[in-house]
Nucleic acid binder design. Structure first.
Length: 258
DNA sequence: ATGGCTACGATCCGTAGA
């Protein structure tokens, strides 16, 4: 089973890229972030025609998340019950034997901003909610744009990014606390190329120069981590005309034994 | 030089992203 996460930065603009990518990679489950669509504008027909069923939680202009899967997503839930939020950042669904959480963690804007405090509060609520979800669903996969580069390896220039949003100590600590729930960073279960990133600024030719960050992640519960056979970042969509600024991250699970 | 792109919804610039 192939799982993927991709911040598409507007599903309206990126739908052709998404459809091409589904055909090229044939993932079983895809979590999308920043779809930036109201619910009634979701391109359900086009995605179903490509062989996927969908669950989504959208809003106008900002945020919005979706889960696409070959088999229909069941027990769909959006948001976190104990954290009321206008912003559509979380959707969860059961696909086969796996519980999937798709998350778009707040960006945080700048370390001295209100949005940064909101990000940290959001992450603490997320941690508490995931702790409960893990107890109910031992086969849990948490995919999304975390807007946190966990370690120096995940940043093209750690010195320059020191104390900046996306890499500040409090954010990285919040990320480690998610891992402390018993989740594993799927990408780091394997030896990976140096300078592996999932996001590159649109400016400064950042992609061509590989000036990126690894901020999109697939976190796996212990049970799923033990079944994970590969993980990678597909940079091909970032090379296309009018790309998302994020590339998809993938993980493969061997579930036949279940 | 505190910018540089891109998407969006508002108009022909401001907000937000990361």
């Amino acid at each position: 089973m192939k799982l993927a996460s991709w911040n598409v930065n507007s599903l309206k603009v990126r739908l052709p890229h998404v459809l091409d990518w589904l055909a090229a990679q044939a993932p079983d489950i895809v979590c999308l972030q920043e779809i930036k669509l109201e619910d009634d504008k979701f391109p359900r027909m086009e995605i179903e025609a490509a062989g996927y069923r969908c669950a989504w939680s959208g809003q106008k202009t900002y945020n919005g998340v979706a889960i696409l899967s070959r088999t229909p997503p069941a027990e769909v839930a959006s948001g976190m019950p104990a954290f009321s939020d206008e912003q559509k950042r979380v959707i969860a669904a059961t696909v086969g034997v796996v519980r999937v959480v798709c998350a778009y963690v707040p960006n945080g804007q700048a370390v001295d901003s209100e949005k940064y405090e909101y990000k940290l509060k959001w992450l603490e609520a997320f941690r508490l909610w995931l702790a409960g979800e893990l107890k109910i669903h031992p086969r849990l996969a948490v995919l999304g744009d975390f807007n946190i580069a966990p370690t120096d390896e995940d940043v093209h220039d750690p010195k320059a990014w020191e104390n900046q949003v996306l890499f500040s100590p409090r954010e990285r600590e919040a990320f480690q606390k998610l891992l402390a729930l018993g989740l594993k960073d799927g990408f780091r279960l394997f030896t990976q190329p140096e300078r592996s990133f999932t996001w590159w600024d649109y400016r400064l030719n950042a992609f061509k120069r590989n000036l990126g960050l690894r901020i999109d992640h697939i976190l796996l519960s212990s049970e799923l981590a033990s079944l994970c056979r590969a993980s990678s970042i597909d940079v091909a969509p970032r090379r296309l005309e009018r790309p998302s600024d994020h590339a998809p991250v993938l993980a493969e699970l061997q579930l036949e034994s279940l």
